[in-house]
Design a protein around this nucleic acid. Sequence first.
DNA 1: CTGAAAGCGCTTACAG
DNA 2: CTGAAAGCGCTTACAG
Lengths: 352, 352
Amino acid sequence: MAEQANVSIGTVDRVIHNRGEVNPATREKIMKILAEMNYQPNILASTLASKKTHVFAILFPEPQSDEAYWNKPITGVRRAFSELQQYGIQITSYQYSQTDPHSFEEKAAEIIDSHPEGVVLAPFYSRESKAFIAKLNEQNIPFIFIDSNLKECNKISYIGQNSFQCGALAAKLFDFSLPGRANILVVHFAKEMDNQNHLVQRENGFYDYFNQTDPGKQKTLHTLEIENTADTNFYYLLDQEIEKLGGLDGVFVTNSQVYRLADYLVERGLKHVRLIGHDLILQNVKHLRSGVVDFLICQRPEEQGYQAINTLFEHVILKKQVAAENYTSIDIVTKENVDYYKEFNLSSYGTN
Amino acid sequence: MAEQANVSIGTVDRVIHNRGEVNPATREKIMKILAEMNYQPNILASTLASKKTHVFAILFPEPQSDEAYWNKPITGVRRAFSELQQYGIQITSYQYSQTDPHSFEEKAAEIIDSHPEGVVLAPFYSRESKAFIAKLNEQNIPFIFIDSNLKECNKISYIGQNSFQCGALAAKLFDFSLPGRANILVVHFAKEMDNQNHLVQRENGFYDYFNQTDPGKQKTLHTLEIENTADTNFYYLLDQEIEKLGGLDGVFVTNSQVYRLADYLVERGLKHVRLIGHDLILQNVKHLRSGVVDFLICQRPEEQGYQAINTLFEHVILKKQVAAENYTSIDIVTKENVDYYKEFNLSSYGTN
DNA sequence: CTGAAAGCGCTTACAG
DNA sequence: CTGAAAGCGCTTACAG
């Protein structure tokens, strides 16, 4: 190593990790030799010697059931953990309610108190997220967004889809399969969405596609917001809407709750309606196989969880440069290829 | 560790790696304690101490150009290498000609002579591949198939698509966008394919779909084999074929050379023809963006290369159980989502 | 058949 | 400001 090439030993370490206490002259000398020999630290030896531990915190929405979407990113986090625990990585998981912004604030405060070395969060509530981010920035804790993005804050990285483009893709698929005149409904199973919300961005992409390609206004588009509760009270809303439109040819549901619309279509015997929605959850797959749902536009949530942790590791431990925006693929899933989108599933890891 | 719990030290190592020379009684005792404490070896320490090196060989077709398909799996191999070289993994790359089975045999012989600890191969020529595999089995060298599969040989794993299902998916997309009567051509840019060949399996899946769903024979299907050379002499073949069919509504090209058919359609001004093919190479993407190609059915070749090496590492070094068939996703790529299928690209690593 | 020693490339107190 | 020593959890010859 550089030590024999020059003088000291632990001094080399001091300059590599610049923990001061080094004569500028010798520092220069060592730096030069390091550069010359293109020194690459051996992380194996390094983590073996320093029995240090690095804790990351994740802050995700609580899954509404065992089959719900938000279980999947956690699976990916676990896989990353299983690979990185040998480097002393620990992960603490925090969950907030999808209907209670206050729970987000509570968990965020807990995270701040625990002083993690990095955070992965899904910024579901944008106001509360911004407050949290301000705190993280104050304390110089690096963070990564997953699933949806917030502009203009110094995140390490965003990992997720381009929501606008998801909407455009859904539009294309309707365009492809519904030639001529058609009534298409866009359904949000959510309430009070602000403009940062990625469901709104999906909607925007959808409308934009037809604005670009359908100057003759062959397609009649309409949007409906339905509160995200588990009941079937929304059926009458749809009945009304369809009557108003004078028939229905297609429905685009902007999130993973498309199965609820599928249930409705089955209940009402509306077999000819093209239905497109998002995400590969069990209930959606059932309706995809039976032909009620035509296409599911999917992300790879396990992959996203896995990548988020890995990216944090690369940034925090390996001090590598990481990409600021990591847009994941927008997958079109049909009955024919659905079997090949089953992501890995692991047994048990102690992610907490 | 177990050492103080009992007696020795290097003896524990001897039983863990069973290099004999251990009294059966003490062996039992140590085994028991190991099990009790659920001993997990520390690979970091292990690879640090034993400055061993593990060499893997890869045997892929030679890319026909800088933009050709077979560059992509190599990129994935490089990425895996960059992560695993710290564990002493080395990779030697061998390439054979896609038009000369003999070159495959030559490279295979070189690999055998080099005594690698594992092999990843694309079994392009099935007869030659079988001979190679027989040798590998003889010498107990584990191997993994990538891209296409060979049944009934004790491979560690297959990593690639289900080709039959790719064909079915292509059929579905035509079915979806060409209602009623239609003439659809299946084009192979290849010659003398045996039945193991994955292009043939794609064709089979395609025909099977319509056999299942089109009892009224609304679709007229026909297959054409065109030798895989770089010229445009095949244009007249297509002209003839179209005349015979009395018009053309769709073409399915079973491999990545769909851009050649796109060139033909542009040249002949056949704008209304639906065109579906395989794989995300530059020339195909160009035609996808311009609207000549409607859908590309894609695999993730970088991902496959990456996974192949990782799987070999897990089997050979980590002694883990690995999945025997690792079917990768069958992605539908359109103009709208193509930007999100650009896989990672790395600068330079010394894979050879 | 089984110890005990040296060393892998680093980090971490601890002397000076 | 800078050495020198001990140790991380393992492996590898080398003695007995």
